[in-house]
Nucleic acid binder design. Structure first.
Lengths: 222, 222
DNA sequence: CGGCCTAATCACCATCGAGTGACTTTGCCG
DNA sequence: CGGCAAAGTCACTCGATGGTGATTAGGCCG
């Protein structure tokens, strides 16, 4: 609720969560980081259902009161986690060409689909947050979604280089569709292991899905 | 948990939820239907977060004990709702051609995307359940997802008539991608009102999104 | 050494959730 | 009319939750 005590994500992450000492006692920054990481872990493992003051405190191995003191409550903690994830796209979706030439705008989008999918599949926390976004709307969540949208836009901006988008195509909409498909498939893969009859468990199966997305992307961009 | 008392969805729906009498007292079928509808409504309105024995009983205007008696608990109620939704695709996604000719397989998929999107946008309950599917995996939920996948497959089967799928294309994967995109966009539209920079609030904005999906579908199927 | 600021914990509250057993009411049928 | 099974309600336990005020414990500095 109140944010007067809230520490920025950057401050917290300076201390690298210190796995060396279990209870270094009396180190505020350390404790703060422990709470922060506990929150992340809890969210990543159990989703927002398992996410609560008591649970976080238990996992962090400290009193829940400290969550209120250092983060101004659960909301503050969520904000901190969200802030930390603001630059997620730029941090987790690489900007290389994987040794291949991106000749058309379609190639570019194909590559984005591939990389975005991989990044998402490697990050349980982000997946949980995406589901969270779908299940309720709140200020924090909206901000995260916005940041991600901007990140994707920037990625495209930087990656496309001299490639020009197709003349008649509605690139914003087409991009959104590609990203949407990838996202839904990744999320569905986790819980149900398949989507609309398409199995999505093994790496090979995932490759098949990505292939389909790629085909559509390339085809759509003239 | 136990299912010995569980009534089938069909049985329940025979009684059309009787909005005429508020408290018809002492009518088991009626009460059962009230509980059933309360569960549906609660799920549709508040999602699975607001879904619980107490809440359902409150909404149904009866004692929660009856939920245990008539449905064998919350799980049983969920099962009943799920059963009722088993034929959702066939019931809610129409099988007409909207007065237009489906000349290619791509046209067919375009039409499916359109109709599936509309059906989903008109059904809050189904949307909630889709999100639910993404946030946890349970037997009920898996069954519902399977039923939906089958429904979609049947829809295509019946609609395609003499149209033949493209030779080289992986239709299963391509279809899954199209459906995935639509689904993700609909779900995102509800909570955040946009997706990856594409606004999704008004009907016009939605049409834009559908247009993009359609373009990709048509392009992908040769 | 002693005080003091602060990290951290303890003890507690109200509330809500699932779940259960005992109870009361009602309609029906002999 | 009497009883009996079914429909429905009540009252409670138990555990977990979010949230708060008072209290303890520890390091640092004069």
């Amino acid at each position: 609720m109140t944010a007067h005590m809230t520490a920025t994500a950057a401050e917290i992450l300076e201390t690298p969560a210190a796995p060396e000492k279990e209870q270094p006692v009396r180190d505020r920054a350390q404790t703060q980081a422990r709470i922060f990481q506990a929150g992340r872990a809890l969210l990543a493992e159990g989703g927002f259902r398992a996410f609560g003051v008591n649970a976080v405190a238990r996992k962090a191995g400290c009193d829940k009161q400290l969550i209120y003191r250092y983060f101004g409550g659960l909301d503050g903690l969520v904000d901190a986690i969200g802030e930390d994830l603001a630059g997620w796209v730029t941090q987790h979706v690489p900007e290389d060409q994987g040794g291949r030439f991106l000749l058309t705008y379609g190639d570019l989008m194909e590559r984005l689909a591939e990389l975005y999918g991989d990044a998402l599949r490697a990050d349980p926390l982000m997946r949980r947050i995406l589901v969270w976004e779908l299940s309720e709307s709140s200020p924090h969540i909206a901000r995260m979604a916005d940041a991600r949208a901007k990140g994707i836009a920037q990625w495209i901006e930087r990656m496309r280089g001299s490639l020009t988008p197709p003349k008649g195509g509605d690139t914003v909409a087409l991009n959104a569709v590609v990203i949407a498909a990838v996202q839904q498939l990744v999320l569905a893969a986790e819980t149900s292991g398949s989507f609309a009859g398409l199995p999505l468990k093994s790496q090979k199966e995932w490759a098949r899905a990505v292939g389909a997305v790629a085909r559509m992307a390339r085809a759509a961009y003239v």
